[in-house]
């Protein structure tokens, strides 16, 4: 009885799936899906040789500091860094006094309350503050940016396939739309408020090119030349740190753990052979 029932249920599900497949295939042949602009023009992020790549890679402190500078002078005008505090910059190699200065000189102020009147106001940020956002709320962010709110960048490199490579490719990927795009997909041409970038998911993004010219940010003594390429790499590295500040501890702990476990595994195999030795012998 169970087997007859099962046979009928199986016949129904399998049969109907095959019918659906046949209908799907028929439709596919009759009206093949039109190719999309994304499918033809979207590019995979470029590979960058970052210092933190690989199982033992670490951050380059100087690069993170330059990346912070690019973020502060360029990105922070529109993007927040919600989950990062000034005190976290100790990990970039700054001391307490330097962090205090960075906080004091940050382009935006922290929200606060006037102690006398209770009215909302702002004050100079302190080390324990989160990085203050450029806009008080999402509505303000939308209103100031043609209805496209700039996303928070704290976790950006973990929130996109390709991570730091993606951020770098996007920043250096702005270009004029290819003539072929206009010919084949006129609808996918950038509009008045969007900009063509083949590394962006739907090819046109609201953010105008942020890094325009070499030397847009002035790096300190001994730093590499602030070319657009260099600035993009530095800020991509910085945003990797904001997304994964514990990367170095993680890899260090991991190396120790794996070595320990390899030895442990060897010992376990030894103990196992040992305990079974007489069983095998007597077999």
């Amino acid at each position: 009885m169970i087997r007859i029932g099962a046979f009928l249920v199986g016949l129904f599900f399998s049969g109907w799936l095959l019918v659906s497949a046949a209908m799907g295939a028929f439709n596919f042949v009759k009206s093949p899906p039109a190719p999309t602009a994304e499918h033809e023009f979207h590019k995979k992020p470029k590979d960058v040789d970052f210092s933190f790549n690989g199982p033992l890679g670490t951050y380059d402190r100087a690069q993170l500091q330059r990346g912070l500078q690019v973020f502060r002078e360029v990105c922070s005008a529109c993007h927040s860094l919600h989950y990062v505090s000034f005190r976290d910059f100790a990990a970039l190699g700054y001391n307490e006094a330097q962090i205090k200065t960075i906080a004091q000189e940050w382009p935006t102020e922290a929200p606060s309350i006037n102690p006398e009147t209770g009215e909302a106001t702002t004050r100079k940020p302190i080390a324990t503050d989160k990085i203050p956002a450029p806009y008080p709320n999402e509505v303000a962010a939308r209103a100031a940016n043609n209805n496209a709110a700039p996303p928070d960048l704290s976790l950006m490199t973990k929130a996109r396939h390709g991570g730091a490579n993606y951020v770098y490719s996007l920043l250096t990927g702005y270009q004029n739309p290819p003539a072929e795009l206009k010919k084949k997909f006129p609808d996918s041409m950038p509009g008045k408020t969007t900009h063509y970038n083949p590394y962006f998911a739907n090819l046109n993004l609201a953010m105008p090119r942020p890094l325009n010219t070499d030397g847009q940010v002035t790096y300190g003594e001994g730093a590499p030349k602030p070319t657009v390429d260099q600035m993009a790499k530095d800020v991509a590295a910085f945003l990797t740190w904001t997304a994964e500040p514990k990367l170095e501890q993680r890899k260090r702990a991991g190396t120790a753990a794996v070595i320990f476990l390899l030895v442990f595994f060897g010992l376990c195999v030894g103990a196992y052979k040992n305990i079974w030795a007489d069983k095998k012998a007597h077999a």
Binding site: F260, L261, V263, F264, L267, C268, G270, A271, N274, I275, A277, D278
Partner: peptide, 25 residues
Amino acid sequence: AGGDQGGVRRRDFINVAAASFAGVG
């Protein structure tokens, strides 16, 4: 397997080492 047959042998040492490693871990 318990190693009662006079003295600690090398094979017992491995068992003890494996158990100690588990403890340290």
